[in-house]
Design a protein around this nucleic acid. Structure first.
Lengths: 247, 247
DNA sequence: ATGGTTCTTCTCAAGACGAGTAAGACTCAG
DNA sequence: CTGAGTCTTACTCGTCTTGAGAAGAACCAT
């Protein structure tokens, strides 16, 4: 290491400028479809293309705070939304991912039950919940980020109680099964799912109540449950198609 | 959003300076202990404290490349080391994590079998492999990063063939079991481990050969295996103590 | 040779899983 | 009001996975 490098590592300001942004992959379930929040870019580059909501991290701001703020700006969801789950997904920093300059983007993953329609952008951007399978041709490397987020979500359903973040405070086993079926994209055996969910310690706990009415197309009233205190599911609920993904 | 903010988001250069660094949590097994590479800081802040190796990302450099470079600078390991595994761990960007300025650090996790002793720093830093349980009082938030890295490593052993990255090209089931025992910190049932490893499709494949000699303290020659082509272990090998961590 | 150690394969009981069946509760169309 | 269809919940059954233990054979050190 020569003198210049030593000084540079001593004083960060000597290094070339890098911008740090957050991008949010926000999932919610609407009309039995997994949807992701997208915004239409109002300015170059990639003007007019759909992209993940995101923006620059402010000087005093924690990364997770910045992600929550960006989400709130698009959806109007209070940053302290009761059932909002927010976790870091990964960081994307290929040197050429933004043509303007070096931009390193920290991606966050957000889940919540029926988030509201996006508020008409006070920042002049159009935002919309889009079914994930229709979310193609995104700006920058956002398609990659979305794919990584989807894969993360799928996996986390297997061994964490994440699915309870997609439903209301009180829910039925069938509603929970619906979340798994929608995110995994395949039907599940109702009886076996029921048995497993109730057998995993701490996944759900009974409220004692039942639904007001039966299902929309018939069937008895279902028992109601709350999320339990488990942070990991043991044994896990594995995707039926897991074996095909192994290699 | 007012005019100033709009312009700022249009031109990243208008935002306050942020430095982007990479930090590397490099694990290797030496003398039956899980060890992590640490460097002693030669300059303020935290001068004299142990820290994870790391440094600033260069202008043209990909994040993973930067992590590999930092690791190579400390260990002399060629960036294309045959069995080196490198993956992104997470990004740490609390506004006050570095007293000098806003520093966002992308942490990487590295695994490899018996990496060499650190080369005496051409950059005047002292580096050493340190048993993880002795790695306390680290600079900045590096203790948190190390803890996250350890947890990630433990989990990945469960459902990926990561353990094969800690052993040589050809290895015995007992050597593989040693990796699990050292990283998980608990003894495993030899017979059951053997059965499971061989029953997971694509985890290991036989070379047909056996070891030259029996174990150092007796025992027959062991059969040799290579890493298979599985990317996920199905069924997974779960930590015996997993049930206690569930809540 | 002898004893202790280790690899490898079995056995056995307990538990988890996938697939199927069934009783009963309920909604909706007619 | 009635019957058909739907859905929740529970149960069975054969198969696979798991944890614990045991045993045989190969090998080292003394």
């Amino acid at each position: 290491m020569d003198e210049a490098e030593f000084l540079a590592s001593y004083d960060p300001r000597a290094y070339p400028p890098v911008a740090v942004t957050v991008d949010v992959v926000a999932f919610t379930i609407r009309q039995d479809e997994l949807t992701v929040l997208l915004v239409r870019r109002a300015c170059p580059p990639s003007e007019g293309m759909w992209a993940l909501p995101g923006g620059f991290v402010r000087e005093w701001e924690d990364l997770a705070t910045a992600a929550a703020r960006e989400l709130a700006e698009e959806t109007g969801v209070a940053t302290a939304h009761r059932r909002l789950h927010l976790e870091q997904l990964g960081t994307y920093g290929a040197p050429d991912r933004d043509p303007r300059m070096r931009v390193v983007s920290v991606a966050y993953l957000a889940f919540a039950p029926h988030l509201p329609d996006p508020v008409p952008g006070s920042d002049a951007r159009v935002a919309a919940w889009t079914p994930v399978h229709e979310a193609t041709d995104l700006a920058f490397d956002h398609a990659t980020i979305l794919a990584d987020g989807l894969e993360r979500a799928r996996s986390k359903l297997e061994y964490t109680p994440l699915a309870t973040k997609f439903v209301d405070d009180e829910f039925t086993v069938a509603e929970l099964r619906g979340v798994y079926e929608i995110v995994w994209g395949e039907p599940l055996h109702a009886g076996n799912f029921h048995r497993k969910v109730l057998s995993v310690p701490g996944f759900v706990e009974s409220t004692g109540g039942v639904t007001e009415r039966g299902g929309a197309r018939g069937g008895p009233r279902a028992k109601l449950y709350r999320a339990g205190d488990a942070r990991l599911l043991h044994p896990a609920l594995l995707m039926p198609s897991r074996e095909e993904t192994v290699r």
